[in-house]
């Protein structure tokens, strides 16, 4: 049983516009039988935080292509795949998690960051 997980999420570069213009969020993920992974976090964000235009944030069960995600201030692509995060999060709680979303327009990287509360 994993205890409730308290993390900070940060959206920026325009991604905050999808979250009522709020960049920094402190959230507590409820306890569940298995440890949280990023795939579940994305679903949780979509259900609990995302205010508008979900198609600019998620695609299928991952983030929309072009979105940059940083976990502990490092590119999540270093961690091979979204499923590999399962192992990573077991060992190391998130400090930072940053997502970069492209908008429909050609411009403006959008990103969001999540980090574990100190």
């Amino acid at each position: 049983m994993a205890a409730p997980l308290s993390i900070n999420l940060e959206f920026g570069g325009g991604a905050e516009l999808l979250f009522d213009g709020v960049k920094k969020h402190t959230v507590t993920l409820p306890s569940q039988s298995e440890p949280w992974d990023v795939k579940q976090l994305l679903v949780w964000i979509q259900q609990n935080l995302l205010k508008e235009r979900p198609e600019l944030f998620v695609q299928g069960d991952s983030v929309r292509p072009g979105i940059l995600v940083l976990i502990n201030d490092a590119d999540w692509e270093l961690m091979v795949s979204i499923y590999a995060m399962f192992a990573v999060t077991c060992i190391m709680p998130w400090k930072r998690f940053l997502v970069q979303v492209p908008t429909n327009h050609k411009c403006n990287g959008i990103y969001c960051t999540v980090y574990k509360r100190a």
Partner: peptide
């Protein structure tokens, strides 16, 4: 990093989405 408030360049938007999917 804010989108232009007027309607986006829709044609480029499609090309962009396609390219991002490929990437």
């Amino acid at each position: 990093s804010t989108e232009c408030i007027y309607s986006p360049n829709a044609y480029r938007g499609y090309a962009r989405t396609f390219l991002k999917d490929l990437e």
